[in-house]
C-alpha cells in the first residue's frame, strides 16, 4: 500500500514539476508547482514526517505560492502563450551538472542510517519512541534547539537579512521626504469655532 502510494505521489510530483516549465500560461505553471509541492508533502507523510508535510503545505503551497499568484495576476501575465522552453547547447551541461549533484546526494544518503535525524536519535525505533513521547512537533524541536541550535539561529539571521533587504528595496522610492501638505486653514478653523460654540 505504502509503495503504491509512493509511486502515485512520486509520479505526480515529477510530472507536475515538468508541467511547471511546460505549461503555456503562468497561472498553469503556478498550479503545477502547487501540485508538485503538495505531492512532495504527501511523500513526507509516507516517511512519517508529518510536521514537515504540514509546514510544506502551509508555508510553500499556502503562503508563498499565493503571493506568486497574487503577483502574476496583478501584473496580468496570464495571456502570454509563447512557449518558453528551448533546449540550447548551454542547457545540456547545466542539466548534466544538476543531475550529477542529485546522483551524488542519492549515493551519499542512500540508507536511512545516514540521515542526520536518524543519527541524533539513534535508530528507527528510537525515532518512533520520541514521536510517541514528544509528539510530531517536539521530535523536531528537540534536536533543533539542542544539537542544531547554531545552524538554526544562523538561518534565522539569514531570513532577517532577507527581510531587511526586501524592505530596503521596497522603500527606496519612498525615502524622499514628502513635503508636508499645507493645512487647509479656513474650514478647519471654522470647524473648530463651531465646535466650541455648540
Amino acid at each position: 500500500m505504502v509503495e503504491f502510494l509512493f509511486i502515485v505521489f512520486a509520479v505526480v510530483a515529477v510530472g507536475s514539476a515538468a508541467g511547471v516549465v511546460l505549461a503555456r500560461s503562468p497561472v498553469g505553471s503556478l498550479l503545477f508547482m502547487v501540485a508538485s509541492l503538495a505531492s512532495v508533502a504527501a511523500l513526507y507523510v509516507l516517511l512519517e514526517a508529518h510536521f514537515l508535510a504540514a509546514i510544506q503545505v502551509m508555508v510553500y503551497a499556502g503562503a508563498i505560492m499565493v503571493l506568486f499568484l497574487f503577483v502574476i495576476m496583478l501584473l496580468n501575465l496570464g495571456h502570454d502563450y509563447r512557449r518558453d522552453l528551448r533546449l540550447t547547447l548551454t542547457a545540456l551541461p547545466l542539466f548534466a551538472l544538476t543531475g550529477g549533484i542529485a546522483a551524488l546526494l542519492i549515493l551519499r544518503f542512500r540508507g536511512a542510517e545516514q540521515a542526520p535525524i536518524y543519527r541524533f536519535f539513534g535508530g528507527g525505533d528510537a525515532i518512533d519512541a520520541a514521536l510517541a513521547e514528544q509528539g510530531a512537533v517536539g521530535a523536531i524541536a528537540h534536536p533543533l534547539f539542542t544539537d542544531y541550535l547554531v545552524p538554526f539561529e544562523i538561518t534565522g539571521i539569514l531570513l532577517l537579512v532577507a527581510i531587511v533587504g526586501a524592505m530596503a528595496l521596497a522603500k527606496r522610492h519612498v525615502d524622499d521626504p514628502v513635503p508636508a501638505p499645507a493645512p487647509p486653514a479656513e474650514p478647519l478653523a471654522a470647524l473648530d469655532a463651531s465646535a466650541e460654540e455648540g
Binding site: 504540514a54 502551509m58 514521536l131 510530531a136
Partner: peptide, 13 residues
C-alpha cells in the same frame, strides 16, 4: 499527529 497544523495547512490552500 499534526492535528491543528493539518487544519492550518488545508485552510491556507
Amino acid at each position: 499527529p499534526i492535528g491543528i497544523l493539518y487544519i492550518l495547512a488545508l485552510s491556507s490552500v
